[in-house]
Amino acid sequence: MKSKLQKLKGTCIGIAGCGGLGSNCAVALARAGVGRLVIADFDSVTRENLDRQYYFLDQVGQKKVRALYETLLRINPDIVVEAYDLRLGPGEIAHVFKDCQVIIEAFDRADMKRMIIEAVVEHFPDKFIIAGSGLAGYGGNNELRTRRLGNLFICGDEVSEVSDELPPLAPRVAAVAALQANQALEIVLDDMEPARGGDVWDE
C-alpha cells in the first residue's frame, strides 16, 4: 500500500470551483499526497462561506484560489498547485484541465454542473469526471452514495437541493467532498479504465 501511494505524487487532479465541495476536496487530496492540483474559481472568500468552506477568518476578502493555494501549501509544501482565478466556461475547461487525469466538479449551480459534464465529455472523452449532486441539509448518512455512468461519477443523494429551507451544512458538504476525493483516489490507484467508444451522441 505504501509504495502504491507513491503514485499519487505523480498524479494531477483538477477541481472546478473552490466553494464547499472544491475547497474540502482539495484539502483531502493534498493530505492524501496527490502531487499536483489544478484549482479554478472566480470568487472571493466571504464571512458567510466559513460555515462550510475550507477558509479562515483572516482570508475573508481574498480570492478563493489564492487563499486555497496558501492553505494547501501550508499542509504540504511539496505539492504543486496551479491556481486559476477565472470563470470557467467550456473553452476554459478545455485549456485549464488538459493535464489532469481526473476532474472534480465542484460548482454550486446545477446548470454549471451540466455545462462541465458536457464540456469534459466533448473535450476529454478519456478523462473521468466526478460530480457532486444532492448535499443540502443534515442527516441521511446512508443516502449519500456514488453512482458510475461511463466516465461520469455522481456523488451525493441526488435529491437534496439547496434552498432557504434546506441550506448546505458543513458535515454533509464535506462528506460529499470526501466521497469525490475518495473516488478520485480509487480511479488513480486502481488504474480504472475509462469507458471507450464515443461518449457523446453523434448521429
Partner: peptide, 22 residues
C-alpha cells in the same frame, strides 16, 4: 438533441438529475 435523438426497444437509458449545491 433531445428532440432528434430517439429511444427504442432494448435501449439502456440513464437520466440523472443535477441538484444545486456545492
Amino acid at each position: 438533441d433531445y428532440e432528434r435523438v430517439f429511444v427504442g426497444d432494448g435501449d439502456n437509458v440513464e437520466a440523472i438529475h443535477l441538484i444545486s449545491g456545492g
